Amino acid sequence: MIDISPEQARTLAAIVTHGSFDAAAAHLSVTPSAISQRIRALEAAVGRPVLTRARPAGLTESGQAVVRFARQLELLSADLAEELQPEESRGRTSLTLVINGDSLHTWALAGLSAVAGAVQLEILREDQDYSLELLRSGAAAAAITATAAPAAGCTSRRLGVMRYLPVCTPAFAATWFDGGAAAESLATAPVIVFDRKDDLQDRYLRRLSRKPLEPPRHYVPAAHEFGEAIRLGMGWGMMPEIEIAQDFEQERLVPLATKSFVDVPLHWQQWRHGSTALDSVAAAIQEAARALR
């Protein structure tokens, strides 16, 4: 059995949070020598390194597991204190979540607003295909992700499907797709892309052509501004179906083709050993996710 003390786990978490042994020592009000001793004892207990010796210090896979343990211990300690001394005021529990920009822009905030009075949230914005790394490292307690298989130490629940439609303005369609949005025209028509991690537009293009298409690209890394760039006629792009119903009604946007879409499944992954606060946030997110397919 591996015997890791809470003090050792908290020390490792402090090193990662503050970036160095010296900064962790100052935060914990101990000497740098004490920090080094704790990490040596931790690595002896684990049987392998927990840190990569770099600046800033990084975590090995084992170190990630220990930091998750430290963060979970903080949440469970808060639950225990509330149960043992409910009359004392302790302030709100702090939670860090990873949410992709489109979910944050369209439906997730409605759910989080329901629990905002009871918890203190830090939201990290990351693409749903990349969010799990922040969960594995212990930087976040939960994430909305496109991955169904639970990360180590986590549980996974399906939220629904985010459907994206390829759209542009009527004027843009008349200029670039007069003969239809075929592979030939899409190879030259400007496209709006969220950032260099965003694969949605290329995923759609791969369905239409066996060879890679490389149209001119505008990168607009903010959900609201991404949509505005399309509405202003800068290019075409994939937008969430739940966002653009009014645009279709008022004919501000038109689809590139009928029955054309890309579906992205979304899942809620959180630490397996969570807390009352984390479970309440999960319930709120699941309720809000009813807006999805």
Rank of each mutant, 00 (worst) to 15 (best):
residue 285 I to N: 03
residue 63 G to C: 07
residue 90 R to H: 02
residue 176 W to I: 02
residue 103 S to T: 01
residue 2 I to H: 12
residue 134 L to D: 05
residue 65 A to P: 00
residue 80 L to Q: 09
residue 190 P to C: 08
residue 212 P to K: 07
residue 224 H to D: 01
residue 114 A to M: 07
residue 84 L to D: 14
residue 12 L to Y: 06
residue 171 A to V: 14
residue 203 R to G: 03
residue 47 G to R: 14
residue 108 A to P: 06
residue 140 A to D: 15
residue 272 R to K: 14
residue 142 A to F: 07
residue 111 G to H: 05
residue 68 R to F: 13
residue 288 A to M: 03
residue 213 L to Q: 05
residue 196 R to E: 08
residue 21 F to E: 02
residue 44 A to C: 12
residue 237 G to C: 03
residue 58 G to I: 15
residue 51 L to E: 11
residue 130 Y to K: 11
residue 45 A to E: 00
residue 244 I to V: 10
residue 66 V to E: 04
residue 18 H to F: 15
residue 197 K to Q: 14
residue 118 A to W: 08
residue 189 A to C: 02
residue 68 R to L: 01
residue 261 F to Q: 14
residue 48 R to V: 12
residue 225 E to Q: 14
residue 246 Q to I: 02
residue 282 A to I: 02
residue 58 G to C: 01
residue 125 R to N: 09
residue 204 Y to M: 01
residue 279 D to H: 13
residue 229 A to F: 05
residue 212 P to D: 10
residue 150 P to R: 13
residue 259 K to E: 09
residue 80 L to F: 13
residue 174 A to M: 00
residue 177 F to C: 00
residue 133 E to W: 06
residue 202 D to E: 06
residue 233 G to S: 00
residue 215 P to W: 00
residue 207 R to K: 09
residue 41 A to H: 07
residue 85 Q to H: 14
residue 167 V to E: 06
residue 128 Q to L: 11
residue 185 S to F: 00
residue 184 E to C: 04
residue 237 G to Y: 01
residue 48 R to P: 02
residue 134 L to T: 12
residue 85 Q to G: 07
residue 131 S to F: 05
residue 173 A to I: 02
residue 153 G to K: 14
residue 128 Q to I: 06
residue 24 A to T: 03
residue 181 A to T: 00
residue 247 D to S: 10
residue 217 R to H: 09
residue 120 Q to L: 03
residue 162 M to V: 12
residue 16 V to H: 11
residue 285 I to S: 14
residue 201 Q to F: 05
residue 192 I to G: 10
residue 290 R to S: 14
residue 291 A to E: 08
residue 231 R to M: 03
residue 163 R to H: 09
residue 112 L to R: 10
residue 62 S to V: 10
residue 63 G to V: 08
residue 65 A to V: 12
residue 117 G to N: 06
residue 273 H to Q: 08
